[in-house]
């Protein structure tokens, strides 16, 4: 601080202020089957067949983690990862830590539905400036945790965001809307759900992977009861009965078939 015109005391005071303003980001992550997974069910179609399934960090959550880190790094803040799930998801949590997140919390319960997950996360989500989720998980596709968290915490929620910027306590978002895109702004704290285009997912480097091994991963017990909904059974889409081939020389015939046989145009 030598040569600092505001002096040593002032310098400490500025440092103190900056500490006060440190941006705190919470990113909620899901662990999902890899996108190439062939989906099947067992136990009379009541349970997802996990045999041979590779699990990954939900692709939209990967964007949320990345943008959360970029914002925290630019504003001198920190990123906490939260996940509701059993111990087998810890490898994926470590991946989020290896991307650069500071710490993680795992709430030790089966993530039965979005409402239970949101109720659990709401218990620990106070005090963050920005709470991020993916637009939806690619397994149960509820797309609801962000909105639920916003309502439970009494703060705004902005869905499907393709841009997040921050200045002077206010976040600016671009978000997809029906038939277009809009720009909205919102003072912290706010919940947002990440959509593709938000950023390029960050690939962990070797240093990050090594550092992630010793980063704090706190284990918490659930505090609420999952009593909103229950999946009774599953089914697969009915397979197509067979394709009817049309001669490419007579491709124009397709329009006639669609008009008069399939009756869809």
């Amino acid at each position: 601080m030598q040569g600092n015109p505001i002096g040593e005391k002032g310098g400490f005071f500025l440092l103190f202020l900056r500490k006060l303003k440190r941006m705190k980001v919470l990113v909620c992550i899901s662990v999902v089957p890899d996108t190439t997974t062939k989906i099947g069910f067992i136990e009379n179609n009541t349970q997802f067949n996990t045999a041979g399934v590779q699990y990954i960090l939900n692709p939209y959550d990967e964007l949320a983690v990345t943008r959360g880190l970029e914002l925290a790094e630019a504003n001198g803040g920190s990123v906490t990862i939260v996940h509701v799930g059993k111990a087998d998801s810890e490898a994926v949590i470590r991946k989020a830590l290896s991307m650069g997140a500071n710490e993680a919390i795992r709430i030790d319960a089966e993530p039965t539905d979005a409402q239970f997950v949101a109720a659990e996360i709401a218990k620990i989500a106070g005090g963050y400036d920005l709470i991020l989720t993916g637009r939806e998980s690619i397994d149960y596709n509820s797309g609801a945790v962000g909105g639920l968290l916003g309502a439970l915490l009494g703060i705004p929620s902005v869905n499907v965001v393709t841009r997040i910027d921050y200045a002077n306590g206010t976040f600016t978002f671009d978000r997809d809307i029906d038939g277009g895109r809009e720009t909205v702004s919102c003072a912290a704290p706010v919940v947002a759900s990440a959509q593709k285009d938000l950023c390029e997912p960050r690939i962990p480097n070797m240093r990050g992977i090594m550092a992630a091994r010793t980063k704090p991963l706190q284990l918490l017990q659930p505090q609420t009861v999952a009593d909103f909904s229950a999946s009774k059974s599953y089914e697969l889409p009915t397979a197509k009965t067979g394709v009817k081939m049309i001669d490419p020389e007579n491709a124009s015939q397709l329009i006639d078939i669609l008009r008069n046989e399939a009756k869809v145009i």
Partner: peptide
Amino acid sequence: YSGKSVAPRVAASLDASLATN
């Protein structure tokens, strides 16, 4: 997009069960 952004918030305020899709 609009429906999906209100459904969870309303479900939380009404303590209702929610299903999307």
